[in-house]
């Protein structure tokens, strides 16, 4: 089983809505965005296994087996 990465807004361009990756013990969000060709500075918000926080900190969190990420570029509204 692998992990699921949900992508939104412009991050979908050329990547699609959902990307699946094989799970590797100890893998982090940084490993995921490296694989996707996304840099930390392009990310405005990230959720790892249901938890959000500052982007830099969340990229160091170990992802659970069968876990998921949601990654967003700068978006807003109201």
């Amino acid at each position: 089983m692998g992990i699921k990465i949900k992508l939104f807004a412009t991050f979908r361009e050329g990547r699609g809505k959902v990307v699946e990756m094989d799970y590797i013990p100890g893998m982090t969000g940084q490993d995921v965005i490296d694989h996707l060709g996304i840099t930390a500075s392009e990310i405005a918000a990230i959720i790892v296994d249901g938890v959000d926080g500052k982007v830099d900190a969340m990229l160091t969190v170990h992802i659970k087996k069968d876990g998921y990420l949601a990654i967003f570029p700068p978006v807003a509204g109201g």
């Binding site: 939104f8 807004a9 918000a45 967003f72 978006v75 807003a76 509204g77 109201g78």
Partner: peptide
């Protein structure tokens, strides 16, 4: 547009 908020 502001609709981009739905998912986040």
């Amino acid at each position: 547009g502001t609709a981009v908020l739905v998912n986040i």
